[in-house]
Design a protein around this nucleic acid. Structure first.
Lengths: 227, 227
DNA sequence: AGGACAATGCCAGTTACTGGCACATCAGTT
DNA sequence: AACTGATGTGCCAGTAACTGGCATTGTCCT
């Protein structure tokens, strides 16, 4: 339940505590009673802050539910900003993303797993989560444009690379949730998440040339046409 | 402003007319006064239906604004369902998407352009549009799973292919809007859209191996590492 | 013409979210 | 310790998207 850093000014510590109380309480209530079913009124009552204050910390009900995910994206963008770019851009994004996951605090893992479990059974949160990933992709491209001096509008490839990185994330994360459920506790931790996302990144080249498997009754396939 | 098909039963024609009135009025009002600024009350008043009826036609304010886009996705999924799969999946998706754009009705083009212009200056609509594209991607993968007898959870590549197709769409459409604005009227039509999306599809392979351009002051780049 | 069914309108309610202002709390200064 | 400016919080009243229920109207079929 990590206490705020002692060295920070009192005011700052207090803010962090409020924020944390809100997202923890939210996660607890949402998991127990459902996201849609829990009203914000109930939440702010439980967390003992006014509704007005809630909205000073989170811009929406969805944001507080997926706070852990938001923190990851913040870290990811920050990591990318301070990273030297060598080799293929896709490889850079891959490393940056994996490192970001690795470097999240100890407590983050637990919260993120809960968050994902919640999203898995709440369609509006699934939507919101995917939307967030697209927003991150936009930021990503902006960072790269800045770093490389390329205009993403001139060179389509830049945007595409951004898309692919987040595509890999979405696929990896999706399979991670599923795997976690299937193999019970112990699995489904951070290491497994990293493995899944890396796996998705690595599958990218092969997916481009993927063809329909030959099933009985099908006519003979033509020569493979250009992608 | 295309009148509903004479052969359809009266009831059906009436429904189509209401639907059309709603989306046309919405587009007109939103373009003139802004999406956020126009309340649904104003819209249903203008279209002369009750608010309750509005929600029987469109599940949200966003949906009516982006109705034209929704129609495209509907057509796309339908096209893919009735399509034989030969060659690489990505090529199939590419053709299916381009054909769908080509086959949309005459009137669609005008509405779609307006729709996109609106989305370009309304952040919540941009978000919603991208979210829609992700939803389509989900459907797409389901269709392919069905057709090919592959489980997307077993083979990551399937989901990735779906992601790439819609990535290409997003990039292509984005550049299309920009290009349309830049070169004035005449350009920015359907043919141009198709060209842009095709261009994005074609840039996919090259984007995987894209590296940072060499800028003065940079150290010598290493050998390209594996993606 | 008349019954079945589909679409619409009306009304009253819920809930996420916002602006404005008064009040409280904290940091730095004297 | 009191003073001050800044920063954070609570309260209140409001808006606007969306929903359920039921009576009413319109369309189809025989």
């Amino acid at each position: 339940m990590s206490t705020p850093d002692r060295s920070l000014p009192l005011r700052e510590r207090k803010k962090q505590r409020v924020r944390r109380t809100l997202s923890d309480t939210a996660l607890r209530l949402f998991l127990r009673e459902g996201f849609q079913e829990t009203t914000l009124e109930r939440l702010v009552d439980e967390a003992e802050v006014s509704m007005r204050t809630f909205f000073r910390y989170f811009p929406s009900k969805e944001h507080v539910a997926l706070a852990a995910e938001g923190e990851l994206w913040e870290a990811f963008v920050a990591d990318l900003c301070g990273r030297e770019v060598h080799g293929t851009l896709l490889a850079v994004l891959r490393e940056s993303m994996l490192d970001s996951i690795r470097d999240m605090g100890e407590d983050w893992e637990r919260r993120f797993i809960a968050t994902r479990g919640l999203a898995a059974r709440t369609s509006v949160l699934r939507d919101f989560s995917e939307l967030s990933s697209i927003r991150v992709q936009r930021q990503l491209v902006e960072v790269l444009e800045e770093k490389l001096g390329i205009d993403g509008r001139e060179d389509v490839r830049l945007r595409l690379v951004g898309e692919f990185a987040l595509s890999a994330w979405r696929c990896g994360a999706k399979n991670w949730v599923r795997g976690g459920r299937q193999y019970g506790k112990g699995r489904g931790g951070r290491a497994e998440l990293i493995r899944r996302v890396a796996e998705a990144f690595d599958a990218i080249p092969a997916s481009l040339t993927m063809t329909a498997p030959h099933r009985e009754g099908d006519p003979e396939p033509d020569v493979i046409t250009s992608a």
